[in-house]
Design a protein around this nucleic acid. Structure first.
Lengths: 200, 200
DNA sequence: ATAGTTTTCCATCATTTGATGGAAACACCT
DNA sequence: AGGTGTTTCCATCAAATGATGGAAAACTAT
């Protein structure tokens, strides 16, 4: 039951954000009484925190998978596959992207001391892109580049419904277009620019 | 008074989102009674809508300025200046980026039929970047590229506080790093790649 | 079957939130 | 000064929201 609640909470928090989500919405979606929700998860903020940690763990694992897959390939191939894999993965779990973006800038009306192993994820991202050999020592500029890449993916995933109508595309076209656009932007920067400086 | 309320609402909605913002928060920040707020602006949703239209109008005007400034320059210079100008502009008005990103994916618990001249903004963006000569006819792939560029800026602006602590930078360093990162990513793509195909 | 533990629900509470009616205060014009 | 229109506030409401106590139901072990 605890897991079922977490799964539903994940989706709804991902769509509506913290304040837009009511505990009754979650309880109703699961099909339980609201006090059952409180019994299992305590306060709303506790549940939200658990959800955020959950998606971050998912992200971490997926990045590990990406790393395994691209290991040993040429740089441009690595970037291509990384973008493909991350994009596919996140399109199936849009709440990850939504919650990640919410975390960046959406304030809540109460203090929420959420602490993350975000640097760890940054190291994984850079490593899976093959930009650094040491996951543990990331210069700030490398971190920013990784952020820009990851956020570009998150944006297209999160904004799918909005952009679909805006661009007058169907879902297949959109996903295809997203991948092409990301590669268009990312590969030249790292392959023509980054490869010569980062490998020094 | 109406304008003062709009200005404050803009900031608070930008920080807390629609549901995270209460009408009392806005009234208090302005220094008025809550019924004064309702007297001038009606329902909360109406105020939110006005705020969103307001920031979009600001964006449109700034893009017009960018266009005027970069007209006639070489492509790489155009992109560089466009990125600089947009970045500076948005860093002074983070609510624009926040509200834009909220608009992409944050659902609200009630229907909100907001309609925008977003395609018009898209045309301006592409034109200010010098990627198309006709603002009115944008192929979808060009739109997606524009989106990726604009969203990359929005993300760094919106996520400033979050990323500052994450990257252990001060504000000056951060802004400088953002610009460098954006140029690193964007210029190679459009100058080496885009110039030969888009100008055909 | 019984006893003990865990889970679920009903009924409810305190507080918060969006919103309003009517009166007072203010501004403007003659 | 008086009249009219506008703005602001006080007091309040209905509904929504986060949350809970206690009892019933369900589960588990012997």
């Amino acid at each position: 039951m605890k897991g079922r609640i977490l799964e539903v909470a994940r989706r709804i928090f991902g769509q509506y954000g913290f304040h837009g989500t009511t505990t009754r919405m979650i309880a109703q979606e699961v099909g339980i009484d609201i006090s059952t929700l409180y019994y299992h998860w305590g306060e709303k903020g506790d549940l939200y925190e658990a959800v955020v940690l959950d998606i971050y763990e998912d992200l971490r694992e997926q990045l590990f998978e990406v790393e395994k897959r691209i290991h040993g390939l040429p740089l441009d191939k690595r970037m291509e596959i990384a973008v493909e894999m991350m994009t596919d993965y996140l399109f199936e779990r849009p709440e990850i992207s939504n919650l990640t973006l919410f975390r960046y800038f959406a304030k809540t009306r109460h203090a929420s001391p959420l602490d993350f192993r975000v640097p760890e994820i940054m190291g994984n991202i850079a490593h899976s892109m093959g930009l650094v050999s040491d996951k543990k020592q990331l210069p700030p500029d490398a971190k920013m580049k990784m952020l820009a890449v990851m956020n570009a993916i998150h944006n297209f995933v999160s904004g799918q419904n909005f952009f679909l109508t805006m661009l007058d595309m169907d879902e297949k076209e959109y996903v295809k277009g997203v991948k092409e656009t990301l590669k268009f932007l990312i590969i030249p920067a790292f392959v023509h620019n980054g490869a010569t400086t980062k490998r020094a």
